[in-house]
Simulated scan of single mutants.
Amino acid sequence: MPREELAAWLRLLLTPGVGIQSARKLLAAFGLPQEIFEHDPAAWQSVVGTRAALSLTALPEHLDTEVDRLQAWLAEDTRRHVLTLGDSLYPTELLQMADPPLMLYVQGDVQALHHPRRLAMVGSRNPTPQGETNAKQFAHALGEAGVCVVSGLALGVDGAAHEGALQAGAPTIAVVGTGLDRVYPKRHLSLAHRIGAQGAIVSEYPLGTPPLAAHFPQRNRIIAGLSQGTLVVEAAVQSGSLITARLAADQGREVFAIPGSIHSPQARGCHALIRQGAKLVESAQDILEDLHMVPARSLDGVLEVEPDGEDALLMAMGYDPVSLDALQARTGLDTAHLQARLLELELQGDVSRLPGGLLQRLGRG
């Protein structure tokens, strides 16, 4: 993007007193930012009022410095991009939103934003051990099926979801609430670098933007907007994850929720979503079938040991009690193959049979 065009976009976005709504009105009325600033203040006033028009007459403080910083950031790495509403690479799904971000900063593979299968995974920053395991295993299974997992790089479920997708060798997208020259939380610095190498990190906030509390609920609309559906793994009743789910529903996207213990506060948000019409899911296969996402590869009747040495059937079981039918749906194995493998795992002490025909993976597995 030429410097003059970049400067016009930053001037529009960084001018104090001109919010995103006013900027959007100006773009609708006059076209691209360079064209906006070719008009006189009287024309601006008729669109956004006197106060905002007056603010636009002055250049934002340090505008040239901000343009220099952004150009230097872009020049450092060919996998860094700035996408505006008029860019051909701007995700079309976001254009369908009521309030699409005017500018997106991207670190990584920009084509990940156009992946044909994208699913948001969100949940608690303080999940139960089972919730964190569920997030990682669902993301791993979805990644193996050719799905790009979209999440928010937060602690807990978000981090586990990104990790599961990366371990499956799949792209994953992190939508963050800071400038892309910062990583928050800091303990996810290594994870962020891996996401940038295998997928993409996305923000609507300028470089240097700190982790302000108001930014995280705002970025949730992008997580929902980029995805064909949203899976809530664990969430309290009052949580940002439910905001993401509501935004997804408002945008006409599917919402899925994993049920949990009636005694766990972290399950109550998912249960509330299910009561409101979210789809209860027990396996990644439930989501793939509902969204008509065809897996990238079939198990072909055989379950192998994963590269890290973990049995794929044990991974499919998770740690919650599971029925034979549900396990068969997750794995695609016929009854004879599945029963034979389960008997082997029982004899090894990795699986136990429970009353009611349920099976459960034991902790030593």
Rank of each mutant, 00 (worst) to 15 (best):
E234V: 02
R221M: 13
V149Q: 11
I223V: 15
A192T: 04
H193R: 15
T178M: 02
A248H: 14
P217K: 10
A248I: 05
V232R: 04
P210D: 14
C270F: 07
A197M: 03
A214C: 11
E204R: 00
C148Q: 09
H193S: 15
S239A: 14
S241P: 01
A170N: 11
E163G: 09
V237D: 14
I243A: 09
G229P: 10
V202N: 01
C148F: 07
T230W: 00
A245M: 05
A248F: 08
R219N: 08
A248Y: 11
R194K: 06
Q238E: 14
P211T: 04
D181N: 14
E254H: 10
R187C: 00
P211G: 09
F256S: 12
A267Q: 06
H263C: 08
A245F: 08
A200Y: 03
D250A: 15
L231Q: 01
G177N: 12
G252T: 11
P265T: 09
A235C: 07
P185M: 00
A236Q: 03
V175A: 13
L273A: 03
E254C: 07
G225H: 07
I201A: 02
A214W: 01
V150I: 12
G156I: 07
A213L: 10
Q167W: 03
A214M: 11
P185S: 03
